[in-house]
């Protein structure tokens, strides 16, 4: 249970980080908060030759409004995001999700960028990012490129970040006044990874849903949208009956992540129940 030896790089600036990444390519891993990477290193599931510790890099730790987006620097720790008034006021779904994210000691150290770069399908933030159509800024010595959340996650623990690149910023759209949000999950212990997640964002015109984003997590290799549930809501007056119909429509998502916490039938049932709860929460009946 001790990590294999590695060489340590400790860049102070984004430029030095880019140089280190360009130099070491796929023999390097980035160490942010270490709450997912270090356990894997302790198990020797991951044995990087070079570890690039970015905890000293200036300019990756911030939360700020930038046009119609709330921009969060990748090295912003969970505790900072969870306690941020700017986050609560502008992207309330993140605040709702943080009621379920990790335990206090893990939140002290873990970072939002590290969490998303890890790409764990049972984690809350990837589902939230897809639900809100967040944009991911991926940087390297070549410059920046922007990727939509739905295209950032490529598979279980796989993202669109290539060797030589790093996730530098996540941009969440600021909530509109007519948007309503909901989040719920089931986990064995509060703060643990979820067995199943449902999160929703509804754009309303009065009682009618103009557009809906319904996202599942924890049940497949990647979180993703539930098109049938979204279709069941779009253009409809969202009532208890419509909530039940949309929740039922999640049956089209076949759970493929099965383990001792739950088989496909159980996870399917959870997803239906959680979707109903998230929707009820969104329309203020939860």
């Amino acid at each position: 249970m001790k990590p294999a030896p590695f060489r340590l790089e400790r860049p102070d600036t984004i430029q030095a980080l880019c140089r280190a990444l360009a130099k070491h390519g796929d023999s390097a891993r980035i160490l942010a908060g270490g709450q997912s990477l270090v356990p894997m290193m302790n198990f020797r599931l991951v044995t990087p030759e070079v570890l690039i510790d970015i905890n000293r890099v200036d300019g990756l730790d911030y939360i700020r409004l930038d046009g119609d987006a709330l921009a969060i620097g990748a090295m912003t720790r969970h505790v900072t995001v969870k306690e941020s008034a700017l986050v609560k006021a502008n992207v309330p779904l993140i605040a709702k999700a943080y009621d379920h994210i990790a335990h206090v000691t893990v939140r002290n150290r873990g970072t939002i960028g590290g969490n998303l770069s890890h790409g764990d399908p049972s984690s809350e933030l990837p589902a939230v990012a897809i639900c809100l159509d967040a944009k991911f800024v991926v940087s390297s010595s070549e410059g920046n490129r922007t990727v939509r959340a739905a295209e950032f996650f490529k598979g279980m623990f796989e993202t669109d970040v290539s060797p030589g690149e790093f996730l530098s910023e996540i941009r969440f759209p600021v909530a509109a006044r007519n948007q309503r949000f909901g989040f719920d999950e089931f986990s064995p212990r509060h703060g643990d990874f979820a067995i199943a997640i449902a999160t929703v964002a509804l754009e309303m015109k009065g009682d009618t849903c103009v557009s809906a984003s319904v996202v599942h997590g924890g049940v497949r290799e990647m979180p993703g949208q539930v098109a049938d549930a979204e279709a069941a809501l779009r253009g409809k007056v969202v009532s208890g009956e419509q909530v039940a119909l949309a929740a039922k429509a999640t049956a089209s998502i076949e759970p493929t992540l099965q383990n001792y916490h739950g088989d496909a039938a159980y996870k399917s049932d959870l997803l239906r129940a959680l979707t109903a709860r998230a929707l009820s929460q969104a329309i203020g009946e939860g």
Binding site: L8, L31, Q35, V38, N42, D53, T105, V106, N108, R109
Partner: peptide, 13 residues
């Protein structure tokens, strides 16, 4: 002033 899991932090940090 904040708790950390000491098995998930390197002394070198």
């Amino acid at each position: 002033g904040s708790t950390v899991r000491s098995c998930l932090v390197f002394a070198s940090q």
